[in-house]
Amino acid sequence: MSSGRRMGHMSRELRSRSTAEELMDDFSQGGPELSEALRHLRRLNRIFSAAAPTLYGVKQLWAHAGKPRSLSILDVGAGSGDVNRQLLKWADKQGIALAVELVDLTEEACSEARRYYEGEPRIKVVQSDLFGLPEGRADIVTATQFLHHFGEDELPRAARCMLRASRIGVVINDIHRHWLAWAAVWLTARLLSSNRYIVHDGPLSVAKGFRSEDWKKLGQELGIPGKYYSWRPLFRFAAVIDKHQASRGDGAERNDENV
């Protein structure tokens, strides 16, 4: 098959979200191979600017809340939590007292996060399940490359649990399902790593990602008026849900890039 036909085939395959299972979703596996994958994933996150949409969304909610001088963030499905480095740097520049809680279900992720943030008092690591989080646990609840692990039936419940655990709002940072993103991740994953998780799950995570129609459907399920999501580089979406605006029925998108 020619490269043009192959890309055409992939574009058709990506019209709807893949339902295939990622290796990281099999909790009977893990161990050193998963720990290595989490370290390699940090490199991929840097290359593809994975932290930027999360920071973008947090800045929006912080501004909408009146720019408080202290802020708590709960990052669910955090892995080793590397995207939060950018949040810590931003908080330092703004003079914000920031506390970040990293939540993941696997021991490997929690161990990697503790090693990665050793000596950083603003970071707390907790092994827990998204669905067991108490109400109002943090000001802002974030999820980076996590919601695509949930199927269509589970997705609204996962988003509602995030909203319930937040006091101000939610930031969802996930992948744009597009053949260019798929090709870039497929190639980069193989150039950087031979780890089975990275090579298999990297491209599949794009195939399980989102397009505008998926966010519109989720917004309808959650009863969110207006546009609450935006496309961000590189092939990402930032979905920002302000609980106060949502309760007022004010879902208009704002853009406070200078905060």
Rank of each mutant, 00 (worst) to 15 (best):
T106W: 05
A97T: 12
N84V: 11
D82C: 04
I73D: 07
W90P: 07
L102I: 02
E107L: 05
E107C: 01
I73Q: 10
L98C: 01
R114K: 09
E107W: 04
V76D: 09
G95Q: 02
K93P: 05
R85H: 15
A91L: 03
V100F: 06
S80C: 09
V83S: 10
G79K: 07
D104A: 00
L105F: 14
V76N: 09
L88C: 03
C110E: 01
D104M: 02
E107Q: 03
S80M: 14
G95P: 05
V100W: 02
L71E: 00
D82K: 01
L87R: 02
D92K: 11
E101Q: 08
I73A: 00
L88K: 01
G79V: 04
G77M: 11
D82L: 00
G95W: 08
A113F: 01
D75G: 05
A109H: 04
I96E: 00
A99T: 13
I96C: 02
T106F: 10
G81C: 14
C110T: 05
L74S: 06
V100A: 00
A113N: 04
V100Y: 03
S80L: 15
C110M: 09
V103N: 01
Q86Y: 13
T106D: 00
Q94P: 07
V103E: 01
G81K: 13
L74T: 06
S72M: 05
K93V: 07
Q94K: 10
E112Y: 04
A113R: 03
K89R: 15
G77I: 12
V76Q: 11
L74W: 12
L87Q: 06
A109G: 08
T106S: 07
L88A: 07
Q86D: 15
I96A: 00
A91N: 02
S72L: 05
L98S: 03
D75M: 10
V83D: 08
D92Y: 12
V103K: 00
V83F: 07
D104G: 03
D75W: 11
